[in-house]
């Protein structure tokens, strides 16, 4: 079986370093602290209620899962942001570009390394994560759902890190740019719906009503939130923990009537979750594609060559 040489080499090199041991130690320590904190809160709440403490243990699932996803989201871009710029700083990039590996193979190797490393941490935490399932009586399927979400978070954050790494010459600039991308996704996607909601409220206040097209179609601005990772995760945990959707009621702020257009479809059933998943995977691969184009030192070479051949003729 062919294994991308970059994955093989990077994992071998990094597993020889003490960094990975310390990384897993700190990761497990943070999880343990969060676990004990959550347990003490659950136990404290159970004193004043007649509920069963064991059934309350299910709340460990979102707490531990969100903690892990936050750590992954913060750590993976830092690790991947130095993947290309680190090769340039180490002066190994030029050699890599003259070998038989294509730029896209290099990028895929780097992203796979980041995902595998992320999964090291997630899998190492499985015994702790299994507690809500054993004691709290949750469906085991949610454990695998969590693995899927962790995989998606790793892919998405790795693709941001690698794109930034291909754009910047220095690793530190790439790390900073990665967090700027995060800001755009987390906060930038919230701005348009907030602006529309404020404008709608002002119109309603000044005119007494909202103009018809604005009222009917204005709600589609909420589709921006499809790109918001926080909304995506909130939707996932709301469905898992409460069996409800957060997005099904979306769009009721701006208009009094039911929204029309794509938002109407997206806010029914599982469409929001499915569409957002597809979007995040798509954006990740788009970022990886741009990164591969960016690192190709002779991008457009084939096109120029064909022009040159035409000119010669």
């Amino acid at each position: 079986m062919y294994l991308n040489p970059i994955v093989k080499k990077d994992i071998m090199v990094q597993s020889r370093s003490m960094k990975i041991c310390w990384g897993i130690f700190v990761y497990e320590l943070v999880l343990a602290l969060v676990f004990f904190l959550a347990m003490s809160i659950i136990q404290g709440n159970s004193r004043y209620s007649t509920g069963n403490i064991y059934s309350a243990m299910v709340w460990l699932y979102p707490v531990l899962a969100i903690t892990q996803l936050i750590i992954l989201g913060l750590v993976v871009p830092v690790k991947t942001a130095s993947s290309i710029s680190g090769e340039k700083e180490r002066q190994t990039f030029d050699i890599m570009m003259t070998t038989g590996m294509s730029p896209i193979s290099v990028i895929l190797g780097k992203v796979m390394t980041a995902i595998v490393q992320g999964m090291f941490f997630v899998v190492a935490s499985m015994p702790v994560m299994a507690l809500p399932f054993i004691i709290g009586g949750m469906s085991w399927a949610y454990l695998f759902w969590f693995l899927g979400i962790a995989l998606l978070v790793s892919l998405f954050s790795a693709s941001i890190g690698i794109l930034c790494s291909s754009l910047c010459k220095k690793s530190i600039s790439a790390v900073i740019l990665s967090y700027v991308f995060y800001l755009i996704f987390f906060l930038g996607t919230v701005v348009p719906p907030v602006v529309v909601a404020v404008v709608a409220e002002n119109l309603r206040y000044t005119l007494g009503s909202i103009p018809q097209p604005f009222e009917v179609y204005g709600d589609n601005i909420y589709l921006c939130l499809l790109l918001n990772p926080a909304v995506y995760l909130a939707e996932f945990f709301a469905r898992v923990m409460a069996g409800e959707s957060l997005t099904n009621n979306m769009g009721s702020f701006a208009g009094q009537t039911k929204a029309q257009g794509p938002i109407a479809l997206m806010t029914t059933g599982y469409w929001w979750f499915i569409s957002a998943t597809i979007l995040f995977v798509g954006i990740s691969f788009l970022f990886l594609y741009f990164a591969s184009k960016r690192i190709n030192p002779i991008r457009g070479g084939r096109r120029r060559a064909s022009h040159a051949v035409k000119n010669r003729h």
């Binding site: 090199v13 990094q14 180490r90 002066q91 030029d94 003259t98 038989g100």
Partner: peptide, 17 residues
Amino acid sequence: KRQLGYVPDFFGVYDNL
């Protein structure tokens, strides 16, 4: 890339390899 071997003026190596 198959026809060519390149040794640059400055190059780095990977630690722990």
